[in-house]
């Protein structure tokens, strides 16, 4: 069976990205340092909270370790793949370089989503996975294969949700030309994902679930790992991902129309 063409394009970009990053080995050590710091701070805060209580809205310390791990892992995926592409997109809309991506006989959304890679940020994926591992090993229930599979699938869904969120933000630069605040905005919101969304008051919980899908992206996979997952949640998560992906696509096309309609 021939490989689908979009995959070939994405794969070629990925290979180039890896080759590119290999030239900057120093970044590898910076990324390790960054990630250690991140894990350390996360653990310290958790320890502080659980020195006062043994449970947070039904989540034990080990449960929260899993959430922290998922948040770090997904953050790593976003920092390595989604964010650099989206920042480049916003930059190119501003200085007109997007033209070249648009003269290619390939889907423009695909191209703008796979051009950049920050390989060394994948260190966060490793440290996130380690934290998850430690958390799970301390759970009384342990893990079985179906839950692990569900967890992996939901991680994928989570990554898709975060990608859509980022693309919607970056597409905004077709209207608001200068979007320098994109990463800060995302980081600020994403940090809230370190806690289970259940602890936030109603309005915040809803906006974190649907408006900014951090809650869905992080908490739902963690639920699979800690035996909290209901089929209903899985259904809602999947449906939401499909709807959000479709809406994102429409919005992207709209932005593109504006780009070609108005810019000089």
């Amino acid at each position: 069976m021939p490989v689908p063409r979009p995959l070939v394009v994405a794969w070629t970009y990925l290979r180039l990205g890896v080759m590119n990053e290999m030239q900057y080995r120093a970044n590898f050590f910076v990324a390790i340092f960054q990630s250690l710091l991140q894990v350390g701070v996360g653990l310290a805060v958790l320890a502080l909270v659980y020195s006062h209580t043994s449970e947070l809205n039904g989540w034990t310390q080990s449960d929260l370790l899993v959430i922290l791990g998922v948040q770090i892992l997904l953050g790593g995926v976003v920092h390595a793949t989604v964010q650099p592409n989206m920042e480049r997109l916003a930059d190119e809309v501003r200085d007109g370089k997007l033209d070249f991506a648009l003269t290619r006989p390939e889907d423009a959304q695909l191209i703008v989503s796979v051009r950049q890679l920050q390989l060394w940020q994948l260190v966060e994926v490793v440290s996130g996975a380690t934290v998850i591992g430690v958390g799970v090993s301390r759970l009384p229930t342990g893990m079985d294969a179906p839950h692990t599979l569900a967890f992996l699938a939901l991680l994928g869904v989570g990554a898709l949700l975060l990608y859509c969120f980022w693309l919607i933000l970056a597409t905004g630069s077709f209207w608001v030309v200068n979007m320098w605040f994109l990463s800060e905005l995302f980081e600020g919101v994403y940090q809230t994902g370190r806690w289970p969304i259940g602890i936030y008051p109603g309005w915040l919980r809803y906006s974190m679930t649907y408006l900014v899908p951090v809650g869905f992206a992080v908490t739902v996979p963690a639920q699979a790992m800690t035996n909290r997952l209901s089929l209903g949640t899985v259904g809602v998560a999947l449906a939401f991902a499909v709807v959000l992906a479709a809406v994102t696509r429409r919005f992207w096309k709209l932005g593109l129309r504006r780009y070609s309609g108005a810019s000089a």
Binding site: V9, T12, L16, N20, K97, E106
Partner: peptide, 26 residues
């Protein structure tokens, strides 16, 4: 479309690698 003041090759890599990319895209 070629624009004299714009660069569309991968900056840090030999052009041969960028050419491979075009092969995939086209």
């Amino acid at each position: 479309l070629v624009m004299g003041n714009r660069n569309q090759l991968q900056w840090d890599l030999p052009a041969l690698d960028s050419f491979e990319l075009n092969r995939a895209i086209y």
